[in-house]
Design a protein around this nucleic acid. Sequence first.
DNA 1: AAGTATCCGTTCAGAAATGGAACCTACACT
DNA 2: AGTGTAGGTTCCATTTCTGAACGGATACTT
Lengths: 119, 119
Amino acid sequence: MERKPHKVSRWDDLAEDWCPVARSLSVIGDRWTILIVRDCFLGKSRFEEFQTSLGLTRHILSSRLKRLVELGVLEKNPYSLKPPRYDYRLTEKGRDFAPALVGLKDWGKKYMPIRKAHA
Amino acid sequence: MERKPHKVSRWDDLAEDWCPVARSLSVIGDRWTILIVRDCFLGKSRFEEFQTSLGLTRHILSSRLKRLVELGVLEKNPYSLKPPRYDYRLTEKGRDFAPALVGLKDWGKKYMPIRKAHA
DNA sequence: AAGTATCCGTTCAGAAATGGAACCTACACT
DNA sequence: AGTGTAGGTTCCATTTCTGAACGGATACTT
């Protein structure tokens, strides 16, 4: 009898956390997801664009996009039917993530200056 | 002579990224790190407090705290010498992370309401 | 002084997530 | 038929995380 496996993953638990920061992280708490959302803000919308921009594996990109769509941060629209092609666009929920992104941007700008990557 | 192993990890690469958001993520881009910082804002400062509050393994907590100290987000201060005890407190760099945290909080509050965790 | 508790970690094996690279589908172009 | 492009999926080795136990150092109790 497979009843719920105790703790599937601490990740999902976060979605129910009392703290709204934790709940946010249950959505965008891994390294790639925020960067995908950032790319969306920068106008990117296609699988290949994200893959090229971020250099993550297609596998992971695929699962992250799927998750973002499920959670209502992005929506997947067909922009071509003949060769089935889709793009991913921010929903309102996604666009409203802007302030958080700006917070991260400002902090990075101030405290994480670019070093000339080694000699 | 193994000079740098090609790609240690895509994580570290982020620290050199042109985008400040990515550079921020190279510091606080994993699920636990932001929560540790949040706990600091909530007044927590000791190993046990973080561990109890977050429920992450001591191993990971230990490595995250070490990393946050190295990166200058937290500082480790002895508050007792006899039994060597330390607490972790936000530096200015850490405190300045507040706006980003607020961004995440607001977003979570608005878009990730708590559901009564199933029956 | 022995026993128990507290705090702060470290070590280890198994589980889960990730990275790299190849493969597949569908269509368009030539 | 062959080549190119977009969007994924599959497979396996490597990395990271979890869970649980173990350890050192001191304090509290008896």
